[in-house]
């Protein structure tokens, strides 16, 4: 009796394995599009990025309308939007000081996009930030922001600072600047991809009865917690680098 049950369970597990033995965390190609002579491949990353953009835009417009409409007597939603905005203001001003008000737009957009991308795994999408193309682009934009801030605050001293303490240090200084976007983007990419791979392995390789209840805890950790931390760290590091350039100018 017992052995019959055991073999039955084994057979069920083997059938389940045979059905879903390939964990699926790859970027899928949806359609090739001819774009001025070159073929551009539309992938899941593009579609998920578009969905994230549209979600953010809808939430932003709804929040703006709600705040303007309920100025005197805030509802739950408009009060939440105001709390979020004032938290963002304090966050940016707390780590960048007075110069923060020039960078609030950029840091806010960065944080919102990275956060919504990271948690989109909760809604069954493949997170756009689990594609190195996305994170490298965000990292390069941040790099341009940092270099712009450096040139703006330090002017020619920035070029002079590259040759300090001795002129032999020039290549090392250049490499330490160029390492910023690489480390920023790889950190985000590695974290989100690790979460995506773990979830795909869990869903793809275990029998059906292990998928009840337990994945919610894994989603809470890999998507919500890890995603929020990484969005925070990305925007915080960008602000720290900009504030660092500003501080060394004074």
């Amino acid at each position: 009796m017992m052995s019959g049950f055991a073999t039955g369970a084994m057979q069920v597990m083997q059938v389940a394995r045979a059905e879903e033995s390939t964990p699926d965390f790859y970027i899928h190609e949806l359609a090739p599009v001819n774009f001025f002579g070159t073929t551009v491949h539309i992938t899941t990353t593009h579609v998920c990025t578009l969905i994230v953009f549209i979600t953010i835009i809808i939430i932003a417009i709804a929040g703006r309308n709600s705040v303007l409409k309920h100025k005197d007597k805030p509802t739950k939603f408009s009060a939440g939007v105001e709390i979020a905005i004032s938290t963002l203001l304090n966050f940016v001003k707390g780590s960048m000081g007075k110069a923060g008000k020039n960078y609030i737009n950029y840091i806010g957009a960065l944080f919102t996009f990275v956060f919504f991308s990271n948690i989109s795994g909760l809604f069954g999408l493949r997170p756009p930030t689990a594609d190195y193309g996305t994170t490298l682009c965000i990292g390069l934009v941040s790099f341009c922001m940092i270099q712009y801030a450096a040139i703006r605050y330090m002017k020619l001293n920035y070029l002079k600072g590259m040759f300090e303490p001795v002129f032999l240090f020039f290549p090392i200084n250049v490499i330490s600047e160029l390492a910023i976007p690489v480390s920023l983007s790889l950190r985000l990419f590695g974290n989100v991809l690790a979460g995506t791979v773990m979830m795909a392995l869990y869903y793809g390789m275990l029998p059906i009865f292990a998928k009840i209840g337990v994945p919610s805890a894994l989603h809470a950790y890999f998507d919500l917690f890890s995603g929020a931390i990484q969005a925070y760290v990305f925007s915080m590091l960008t602000m720290t680098f900009i504030a660092d350039k500003r501080a060394s100018a004074e």
Binding site: L186, R187, F189, G190, N191, A194, I229, V233, L237, T240
Partner: peptide, 17 residues
Amino acid sequence: MLLGQAVAETTGLYGLV
């Protein structure tokens, strides 16, 4: 603490990648 930990995590993530 979280910022420092995230920076320390980077080298491990290079290995993962």
